[in-house]
């Protein structure tokens, strides 16, 4: 039984395909590498908070980590702890029930903090705009540095947004906020 399994694994299989959009990924990689290295010389850690999404944005956010886009190759990675994070990435509307949690996550992060709103809901409430259960987009509870629109934005768009942040970051001083 063991030998059969072992023998089977000795036979090499052709490498499975793993490229979806070569050109786009290559271009992104180039731009990110240039921007990231010049100024930061280190990697940025992202803490994601779903503040009231439909889970569409989370699917696409997770897809940025798959082997087609491979977010970590750019030095960007997700971290479970806000204490380790440089970027607070919000998806979904600013739901009333998540208000305290979002504020606490923001307060737990070391300054300076970059805040990104990903997806139409986080930008301005999206289709849920005007609902009494929400306060609007992420900017209704936090100061937002960058928005990535789309419902949901595709993984490439999200990476493009992160890149834009790094490029802006390259020329302007990083925003420093007074801790609350």
């Amino acid at each position: 039984m063991v030998w059969k399994t072992l023998a089977r694994h000795f036979i090499s299989h052709p490498a499975p395909p793993c490229k979806a959009n070569d050109a786009a990924v290559a271009a992104l990689r180039q731009r990110l590498a240039a921007a990231g290295h010049k100024k930061l010389g280190r990697s940025l850690a992202i803490r994601h908070v779903a503040a009231g999404s439909c889970n569409g944005c989370e699917l696409e956010l997770r897809a940025t980590q798959n082997l087609v886009y491979d977010l970590t190759q750019y030095g960007l990675s997700f971290t479970p702890s806000p204490r380790h994070a440089d970027i607070l990435l919000i998806t979904g509307v600013a739901g009333g029930n998540m208000l305290t949690a979002v504020r606490q996550a923001r307060e737990a992060m070391p300054e300076p903090v970059l805040v990104i709103a990903v997806g139409d809901c986080a930008v301005d409430g999206g289709v849920f705009k005007g609902s009494p259960a929400i306060t609007g987009g992420a900017d209704s509870i936090l100061q937002v540095d960058l928005v990535v629109a789309g419902c949901p934005p595709a993984p490439a768009q999200i990476i493009e947004g992160l890149l834009a942040l790094l490029e802006v970051n390259d020329t302007a001083p990083r925003p420093v906020r007074v801790p609350r």
Partner: peptide, 11 residues
Amino acid sequence: LGYSHKGTLAL
């Protein structure tokens, strides 16, 4: 649960 409440039915 309830953290993702957005008032969808009312909308």
